[in-house]
Computed example of a mutant assay.
Amino acid sequence: MKNVNQMIKEPGIWAGLNRPGISLEKADAVVFGIPFDGGVSFRAGAKEGPQAIREITYTIAPTTERWEDLSDLQILDLGDVEGKDRDELFLEAEQAAYSIVKSGKLLTMIGGDHSTTIPVLRGIDRALNEPFGILHIDSHFDLCDEIGGDPLSHGSTERRALELKNITDTESIFFVGVRSVESEELQFINNNKMNIIGAAEVRKKGVENTLHKIKEKMGRFNNIYITVDIDALDPAYAPGTGTPQFGGLDSRELLDLLYGLFELPVIGFDVVEVAPKLDDSLLSAFAARKIITECWGHHNRKERNITGTYR
């Protein structure tokens, strides 16, 4: 098994799109991992997600499901952030996110549990001088002030986001696919204006209506960040995650949602909570790989004004 330092030096990673050693300025998208799962409240294993996802990117073609060629895309994999403890790890992640956003490149982070999104959002907040929006695609709200005494838990991601200077109100976040709520979160939601489309509503109203509602609310932002918890998918499509929830999005719904969401000014995205050891078939890792490469395709299409073979 290759370690991360070996993999990121090889051009064969990420469907042959990795460009080892290129400058940040020459990259189209920059990816890094945060192998941390110390913020979980139940089953661990997400710290192994970044390596497991990278390991299955050698054999795929540099194309999208819409038959677009990505071979000219310049991907720079920075590897995994490191630190002797969570504080140091999160500071490194925050700085990486800050630098990528400042450079104007598409930020891609692979977690790690959902707490790893917290330092990324902090880095984005530092890099921007205006409000930004967050699309939170997840089975959970992650609005708990703390879990088990930990304010940086994977269930507190968006509560911490609401403390950022450029997240100006509760409607700056749009929750998609949610189908589980803690008592504390329910009280918070009932007392604040929130943007929410649960998994059941996506199924009932369809992807196009869902996208219309999201764009209507989030169109006010010049910068959007998308965070995808793999448990937004029904466990049938992604069983390898710490807190799976029955009744989720199916794979087609999620892919079509992401296709439409990239019509918004997306500056970055992440995929978190992939726990390979909880899934012998690695379905969750394969799902994450697909999400990442398709999102790169959406970004590439928009940047180069490309129309796919089919829509």
Score class of each variant (00 low, 15 high):
1 M>L: 08
4 V>N: 04
15 A>T: 07
16 G>D: 11
17 L>S: 05
18 N>M: 09
23 S>L: 09
37 D>T: 05
41 S>G: 13
50 P>Y: 00
54 R>G: 03
58 Y>N: 10
59 T>W: 00
61 A>Y: 05
66 R>M: 13
69 D>I: 11
77 D>F: 08
79 G>S: 10
79 G>R: 07
84 K>I: 06
89 L>S: 04
90 F>N: 02
90 F>C: 03
93 A>V: 08
98 Y>M: 07
100 I>F: 06
101 V>F: 00
102 K>Y: 00
110 I>K: 00
110 I>R: 00
113 D>V: 07
115 S>A: 11
117 T>H: 01
126 R>S: 11
130 E>S: 08
132 F>K: 06
132 F>T: 01
134 I>T: 03
137 I>S: 04
140 H>V: 12
141 F>W: 02
142 D>L: 03
143 L>C: 06
154 H>G: 11
157 T>W: 01
157 T>D: 03
170 T>S: 15
174 F>Y: 14
176 V>E: 03
177 G>D: 06
177 G>A: 11
180 S>R: 07
181 V>Q: 03
184 E>L: 09
187 Q>M: 12
191 N>S: 15
192 N>V: 14
194 M>W: 05
201 E>F: 11
203 R>C: 05
208 E>P: 02
217 K>V: 15
217 K>C: 09
230 I>Q: 08
234 D>V: 13
236 A>V: 13
241 T>S: 05
256 D>S: 12
261 L>S: 03
269 F>S: 10
271 V>A: 11
272 V>Q: 06
278 L>D: 02
293 T>M: 12
294 E>G: 08
300 N>R: 12
304 R>W: 14
